[in-house]
Each structure stands twice: as structure tokens, then as C-alpha cells.
């Protein structure tokens, strides 16, 4: 209920016929940011490049979860299945076929996309909480199986050859492109007619169906897109970690990180997951690593505070406040409209 309200507020522009022009403008702006970011690679210190790589990978991870959970209302608790598939398929392709990281990343994304499509057959029978639990079960089963899969190293894990790992600068550029892709896909999905139909689907599957939305096709498409982006993020994590065991890549941690980042940043918004990734990875995980359990306390507390006091998340809340400052009259009108709807 509250998330629906939040959408009416922050995404009111969707109803504006001019809004469709926002997609090319926003993607263009993102592309400019990405190109500037790529150009800046030589100017940045290794420390910043390093922060960038991990941050970009988390942005892609969070945005991919947002596309599924935030835009189409399909909460996934099995993110590890796609991260792991991406990481393992890339490592296997690099080790056994001698491929370099570029085709390796494409394989990571494709394999996770294929997994999504295969899992979609049973998963799309499920709705709401059941879908969430279904992704959880699929992820757990896959992890338990990979632990026994001798060809991929079983529980001893797998390594990418150190010589095949790109340099920090290259990793930064890869990360930037991956993060750009994830945010651009979200923009396109969120602010297009397609996105409007997804929103309808999220609020009520039956309602969307009555409006003529091909619900199964839309859910499948979002599932596969999200899977491909998650696999790409998994490939990037694998390139930075180099050696990993099944529980590292298929484990529950990825679901937790994606969920926390998106909820805190702002579920269903375009930039919310980016803000969430920045706040959690940079603000909490990195800065508080010297104080064991403090970051856990903060994350748990933040989650509770967010769902209790600002369910729409930090970014949409901040945008709303800024808009209210910039255009008090318009915002007041809109807010009173919201209050009436409540």
C-alpha cells in the first residue's frame, strides 16, 4: 500500500505524456556520466579505482534485484543462484576453453539468463510470497548440488588463473559499463509503456491481465533480464575474488546484500539502489570494518527504521523533500492528493 503511494509521488511523471522523452534523455545523461567515468580512469588513484570496481558490481547486483522485486513485484530470495551461475560459468569457460574475460563475462550473463528461463517454468506458477520462497528453494538446492559437483571443484571451489585477471583500471572500466547497463535497463523499464505495464502487474496481477497485459511474458522477460544482469555482476565479483568456493558465490549473502541495498536506497526507483549500494558498501561495510558486529547492528537497525518510517527508501524520500523545497505549491498539491488517496 505505502509503496504504491510512494510511486504515485515520486513517479508521477509517468502519467505525463511528455515523460516518454525522459527515457532517451536519461539514458543519454547516464551515457555521458559513464563516458566521463571511463575517461577519469587514468586520473583516479588505485584506491578509488578499487572502491569503484566493487561499488559498480554492487550497483549492478542491487539494480538487477530492483528490476525484479521493485519494478515487477517479484521478490527474489535466491540471488546467489544467479551470481554463482555467472561466476562459475565464467571461471569454467576461462579455465577449460581458454577464453579471456570479455567472452567470459558474456558467458556469465548468458548462463544466468538461461538459468532464469529454465527456472521460470516452475517459478512463474508461483505468486507473491510463494515466488519468494520458490527462488529461495531453487537457490539452496543449486548451492547444495554445486558442493557435490566434482568437475567444478566441489566444495574446494574454483580458481581463475591470476594471469587472466584484468588490471585494476580495466576492472574499473568493466564495472562502470556493467553498472551503466544495469541502471540504463532500469531507466528503460521504469519510464516506458513497458514499465507502466510492469507497475500495473506489480500492484495487481489480475488487474494487469484484465487490462490486456500478457502477464506471463512480462514476468518472464523481467526475470531473464534480472538474471542476466545478476550473472554479469557475479562474473565481475569472480574476476575480483579470483578463487572461490560454492558457498561464496551461491550463498545467501548476495540476497541479503541486494535486498538491504535496494530497500534502504529505495525500491522501485531508478537511483535508489545506487544510493543504497553507496550507503551500505561504502558508508557501512567499508568504514566500520574495524568494529566487529557494529555494521550488523547498524544494518539491522536501518532496515527496521526504513520500513517503519520511510518505506519508500532514502532516495525517493530525499527527492520528495528536495522537490517540496523547490516547488512548494506543486508538491503541496500532490501531497494533499496522496493524503486523499490514503
Amino acid at each position: 500500500m505505502a509503496t504504491a503511494t510512494a510511486h504515485v509521488v515520486t513517479g508521477a511523471a509517468e502519467l505525463d505524456p511528455l515523460a516518454r522523452r525522459r527515457v532517451p534523455v536519461a539514458v543519454g545523461a547516464l551515457a555521458v556520466v559513464a563516458v566521463v567515468g571511463l575517461g577519469a580512469e587514468r586520473l583516479l588513484s588505485p584506491a578509488l579505482l578499487n572502491v569503484g570496481v566493487t561499488l559498480f558490481a554492487y550497483v549492478a547486483l542491487a539494480e538487477a534485484w530492483n528490476i525484479l522485486g521493485g519494478l515487477s513485484g517479484q521478490m527474489s530470495l535466491g540471488v546467489g543462484a544467479f551470481v554463482g551461475t555467472g561466476a562459475y560459468s565464467m571461471a569454467l569457460a576461462m579455465n577449460h576453453l581458454g577464453w579471456s574475460w570479455l567472452p567470459g563475462l558474456l558467458v556469465a550473463s548468458a548462463a544466468a539468463g538461461v538459468l532464469s528461463a529454465v527456472l521460470a517454468v516452475p517459478l512463474l506458477r508461483l505468486h507473491g510470497d510463494y515466488f519468494a520462497v520458490g527462488t529461495l528453494a531453487a537457490g539452496l538446492a543449486l548451492e547444495a548440488w554445486v558442493n557435490n559437483w566434482g568437475f567444478a571443484g566441489g566444495s574446494s571451489g574454483i580458481s581463475i588463473a591470476v594471469g587472466a585477471v584484468p588490471t585494476l583500471g580495466t576492472l574499473y572500466s568493466i564495472g562502470l559499463v556493467v553498472a551503466f547497463l544495469a541502471v540504463a535497463v532500469t531507466v528503460v523499464l521504469r519510464w516506458s509503456i513497458f514499465g507502466l505495464r510492469l507497475l500495473a502487474l506489480r500492484e495487481s496481477e489480475l488487474g494487469a491481465e484484465l487490462l490486456g497485459v500478457d502477464v506471463v511474458r512480462y514476468r518472464l522477460l523481467v526475470l531473464v533480464l534480472s538474471g542476466m544482469l545478476t550473472g554479469l555482476a557475479g562474473g565481475l565479483f569472480a574476476l575480483t575474488q579470483i578463487n572461490f568456493v560454492p558457498s561464496d558465490m551461491f550463498g545467501m549473502t548476495w540476497t541479503i546484500e541486494a535486498l538491504v541495498m535496494v530497500i534502504i536506497g529505495g525500491m522501485g526507483s531508478v537511483l535508489g539502489p545506487v544510493v543504497g549500494a553507496l550507503a551500505i558498501y561504502y558508508g557501512i561495510s567499508t568504514e566500520l570494518a574495524t568494529y566487529p558486529t557494529l555494521s550488523l547492528f547498524l544494518e539491522g537497525g536501518l532496515l527496521l527504521a526504513i520500513v517503519r518510517f520511510f518505506p519508500e527508501g532514502l532516495w525517493p524520500f530525499a527527492v520528495r523533500r528536495l522537490r517540496a523545497l523547490a516547488a512548494p505549491a506543486r508538491a503541496a498539491r500532490r501531497l494533499s492528493g496522496v493524503a486523499a488517496r490514503r
Binding site: 500500500m1 505505502a2 509503496t3 521478490m75 507473491g128 510470497d129 519468494a132 541479503i256 535486498l259 530497500i263 525500491m267 566487529p292 558486529t293 550488523l296 547492528f297 544494518e299 539491522g300 537497525g301 536501518l302 532496515l303 527496521l304 526504513i306 520500513v307 517503519r308 518505506p311
Partner: peptide, 24 residues
């Protein structure tokens, strides 16, 4: 009152707090 999502996320937040409390 805010929907099932909020329930899942909120109880997850409690779980994280609980683990932190046990560990410390």
C-alpha cells in the same frame, strides 16, 4: 499495515539485529 514486503524486510532486520546481539 504497510504490506507483506515490509513484514519480510522488517523481520529480516530483526534477524540481523539478533545475530549481532548474540555475537557480541
Amino acid at each position: 499495515l504497510k504490506g507483506t514486503e515490509a513484514g519480510i524486510v522488517g523481520t529480516f532486520g530483526l534477524a540481523v539485529l539478533g545475530e549481532a546481539a548474540f555475537a557480541s
